[in-house]
């Protein structure tokens, strides 16, 4: 018997932008087609990277592709983003990132000067994150068959003894911490697009989180779970965690750190900041008794100065995220359906 496409044709017979949006359609594609066919134990953990043993050493391995438009945006560029994105995916697996690969897919006619800027930016980013770019690949596609430049990075890192970051370790009562103000990357990209004539000082939060996370893990290796809320934002990450752990997540709207200008732009455009991408934030789930101390460690670092405890894991509403609103009522925070904004990373 031949292989049958696991996504019924009645769903979609063509890829939509939303299949890459980090929301429900992305999940369907990943779950139904990729996971079910590539099916293995490591993949099933559904983390930002795979963690496995090599001899006595625990290794983390991850990959990510970057198609952000525009390639230079307030607070960063595609090169820096590609390094930090992979560094952060390793860091939230509990790993200390070591080596990174880079694949460039460049459109014919792309400016050599801009490529040089991207390369310099990647080198600076790698130095800041203390990783080395050790291998790579370059492909050029016909003019009109790509959009300037796409970058893929993969990375490996070592998971220290005693660290185990996994959905399976989450327990009711665990506190949920976010390391800073939300939605800055997505809104920075939005404000940089030509169709928006905003004059804002909003900058992307793109930053390497590995040093910050290392500081925490050195003192508190018992962190249960970490994720970086990139595409799909805080809500998508919390929903994924709630579904995978089959526990409930309760958060409080008043505790979620957000800058006033970001909040204002979201209000004007009708966007929910909980669904907007971050590129320099980590969400941690950890034993309640460690939460205050970890919060202090985060707050003592510039990358974590606005960190806050935003909620906890509960026994109720399994698999769902519920938020206490500013007026004290409760509402479901669902996974992003479709896409709020395409090609943000």
């Amino acid at each position: 018997m031949g292989l049958v496409c696991p996504i019924p044709l009645t769903d979609y017979d063509k890829i939509l932008m939303a299949h890459g949006g980090g929301g429900t359609l992305s999940h369907q594609l990943i779950q139904k087609m990729f996971f079910s066919h590539f099916n293995n134990e490591l993949l099933k953990t559904e983390h930002d990277g795979a963690g496995f043993s090599f001899g006595n050493q625990r290794i983390a391995f991850t990959t990510d592709s970057y198609v952000v438009r525009p390639i230079f945006f307030p607070g960063g560029d595609i090169g820096e983003l590609a390094v930090y994105g992979t560094v952060n995916d390793l860091a939230v697996c509990g790993a200390e990132p070591l080596y990174i690969s880079v694949g460039f897919i460049i459109e014919e006619g792309f400016s050599m000067d801009e490529l040089w800027k991207i390369v310099q930016s990647m080198k600076a980013a790698a130095d800041r994150a203390s990783v080395k770019i050790v291998t790579g690949d370059t492909k050029v596609v016909d003019r009109g068959k790509g959009d300037k430049i796409y970058v893929n990075t993969s990375g490996v890192g070592i998971i220290p003894q005693g660290v185990e970051i996994s959905n399976s370790r989450i327990k009711p009562g665990d506190k949920i911490i976010i390391s800073g103000k939300i939605a800055e990357h997505g809104i920075a990209i939005l404000s940089a697009r030509e169709e928006f004539e905003f004059e804002t000082s909003v900058k992307s939060d793109t930053a390497p989180l590995n040093h910050l996370i290392k500081k925490v893990l050195e003192k508190y290796p018992d962190i249960h779970m970490m994720r970086d809320p990139t595409r799909g934002g805080v809500s998508s990450v919390l929903n994924e965690i709630a579904k995978k752990s089959n526990l409930g997540i309760s958060i409080r709207e008043t505790e979620i750190p957000i800058a006033q200008d970001i909040k204002a732009i979201c209000e004007i455009l009708g966007l929910d900041p909980l669904y907007i991408a971050n590129e320099g934030k980590v969400i941690m789930l950890l034993p309640s008794e460690q939460a205050d101390s970890v919060l202090q460690i985060l707050k003592s670092d510039p990358l974590g100065e606005h960190a806050a405890i935003i909620g906890e894991v509960v026994e109720e509403h399994h698999g769902r995220v519920v938020m206490e609103t500013t007026i004290g009522s409760n509402r479901i925070v669902d996974m992003l359906s479709g896409e709020q904004l395409p090609r943000i990373c």
Partner: peptide, 11 residues
Amino acid sequence: YFRYHKRSDVA
């Protein structure tokens, strides 16, 4: 209703 309301699958 789908996004915010307490649906039957929510305790």
